[in-house]
Design a protein around this nucleic acid. Structure first.
Lengths: 145, 145
DNA sequence: TCATTCCCGACTAGGTTGATAGGGAATGTG
DNA sequence: CACATTCCCTATCAACCTAGTCGGGAATGA
């Protein structure tokens, strides 16, 4: 019950880009340094994010990456799905073709489908913008004023 | 975001045992046939379940397995945890030692911890007894009378 | 004594993951 | 045009994990 490094690194990259000034492009090199992911590995991930319509890129001198749409429209689920294929799919184990019927098999599947839905919803609802704002909670800022 | 075959097969075995008359023992062979899992593989799983205090066993002629405690006290989470180690632990990826700080890293971790809790709670709450009863819903029974 | 049944560890084929490497294509600069 | 820069794309690989097999040992009861 975990997700891949690719997904995790993708989230890092998108968060970093979402946090930098709009219309500023960041190069792989910079993203690599901030996120702590090797340039070459990150490259593959950024490419996938681009193909998935989350980032846009520019080549040549002064090129780099930036978000292709507002951070409020990008969700954790969208990113993870892009890299890992499916989010939470417990029920497809109990559902697979060839699975025999046994006492509780139907009930089990219902349970797992419920959990799948819960998790997928939670991940699809959380936007990158929200995550960034959770980073620096308002009440703590209030104290600092 | 899925769990191992071992966990799945363990759930099958426990459900089958919970559904059979109390104090009746089932042999690996029988469990294998009903669950559709090879005898040898199932063997390992049953052994783990026994060591985990979920099943008890008896050797020799007429031996076999049975539940070591009532089905209402055995949860899906308990079984999965026994076989797979942890249930849902998304947050330990973002939490791992050596993870750098980047914009949103804290927020991300909070999100994942929330999901971890949700899933773990859901799995820890659902008992084997409940799952069995979901299999044959009461309203359908009512129709058949 | 012997068949039965669970107990236990070793082993392995095959797939997945995380990552590296190297060259190609676009783009801006002088 | 020539060239440096930066992204684009594919191939390859070692390490690890999973699902499963195998062979024998130990307890139990007839």
């Amino acid at each position: 019950m975990k997700f891949s490094k690719k997904s995790e690194y993708a989230l890092r990259a998108v968060l970093i880009l979402a946090n930098s000034p709009p219309n500023k492009t960041l190069q792989i090199q910079e993203l690599s340094e901030i996120s702590g992911v090797s340039v070459k590995f990150l490259e593959q991930i950024l490419l996938a994010l681009k193909k998935g319509g989350i980032l846009r890129s520019k080549r040549g001198v002064g090129g780099g990456y930036q978000l292709d749409r507002p951070a409020r429209s990008i969700t954790l689920g969208g990113i993870i799905k892009l890299l890992d294929g499916d989010l939470c799919n417990l029920s497809n184990a109990t559902d697979a073709p060839g699975t025999p019927e046994y006492p509780g098999s139907a009930g089990l599947q219902t349970c797992f489908r419920e959990i799948d839905e819960q998790v997928n919803e939670a991940l699809q609802e959380r936007t990158i913008e929200e995550v960034l704002s959770m980073d620096r909670p308002k009440d703590i800022l209030a104290f600092e004023i």
